[in-house]
Design a protein around this nucleic acid. Structure first.
Lengths: 188, 188
DNA sequence: GGGCGCATGTAATGAGTTACATGATTGA
DNA sequence: TCAATCATGTAACTCATTACATGCGCCC
């Protein structure tokens, strides 16, 4: 009856554009390669899908942020290679500064459930939250296997680790409290 | 030329439905009051807009999760009062457990910029990040003024504070490193 | 010759937002 | 009487996603 879906992105279009501009700034690229690179190496930063990449490239070209020249190779579809324009460079600089200086508090989907946590029997609640914690731990474990990345991404990876550790501690503190309350045997 | 927009939600539709069901579970309500309550008291949990609330109520009624009875009061538009059905209760229980046990790593918009931070002169970078930190601090300051909430929300508020403090520390550590590198005078 | 990788897209759908539309009641 | 609040909604738009469509080149 229910459920599938889920999109936990808090990326806005600005950040996607910033990302694309930033990559094109380093070197000219066509959509396929760009998306491949993003999927392979920047999965932590973003979750930009292929049609979205093509769409944004198209749009940015129309806005004059990037220019296009086609490269034919046999009879394949021509590579539409994009290059940052001067306008694009300006936009990049602006978006970058805006991203670096702005802060917006995200709204955590977790919290919707937390607000009703008292509807679940405490033993089951603990079991559920332990499942959640296991997923966080799994993420952390996986991250320790990630080899040193280009300096670029080191900060991003650190941030992610920092965040996950925080969430783990937070969950732990809730579990401890729940545990204490069952041991005192005073809570429902 | 640019910029407006921004939606930093990581709430999926599931969580919105969970929220609405959870509220209707406590007492029957019509859309207007429901939205009012959400906007006033649950702004930390969600950012559900009015038309979205009406839309979801409609949809949930069609799915049989809630039922509707109208209350006329003079010649105003009738209040369409919704009540949780048995099916709705089942769905609520399921969504709640799913929310409590699942975890998905969010993707932070901040990180897109961080990845290109080395494009900004270090002094300016520090200035920008300090602006960001000021916004986090402001959020934290504002939270300390929030009086004790119903037990319900206490955890959510704690989570938010916990998260904001983490982000502040993380930013601080970056700023310290940047500062150290300028003092050594070895970085561009 | 069959399947994977390269390379492009389009179309349909979903979800949510903003802006607009309507009209009664209440209080200054 | 005029503005704010109560109470409902619709319409148009934006953004992103999934699924589909096409076809060449290369390797086993």
């Amino acid at each position: 009856m229910l459920i599938v879906n889920v999109d936990y992105s808090i990326l806005s279009i600005m950040d996607r554009e910033l990302l694309l501009l930033g990559l094109l700034r380093r070197r000219d690229m066509h959509g396929y390669k760009l998306h491949e690179f993003i999927e392979r190496d920047l999965a932590i930063c973003t979750d930009l899908k292929k049609p979205t990449a093509y769409f944004l490239l198209d749009k940015m070209e129309k806005q004059g942020w990037i220019s296009r020249h086609d490269e034919q190779d046999g009879k394949r579809p021509a590579r539409r290679v994009y290059r940052l324009t001067d306008t694009g460079e300006e936009v990049f600089q602006r978006l970058l500064r805006q991203n670096l200086s702005d802060y917006h508090v995200p709204i955590f989907s977790t919290d919707a459930g937390l607000a009703f946590a008292d509807e679940v029997p405490i033993a089951e609640l603990m079991r559920l939250l332990e499942q959640k914690r296991a997923q966080i731990d799994a993420e952390l474990a996986q991250m320790s296997h990630v080899p040193d990345h280009a300096g670029l991404l080191q900060l991003v990876i650190e941030h992610r680790r920092h965040y996950l550790e925080t969430e783990a501690r937070w969950l732990e503190s809730i579990l401890n409290r729940l545990n204490a309350s069952t041991e005192r045997g005073t809570e429902s």
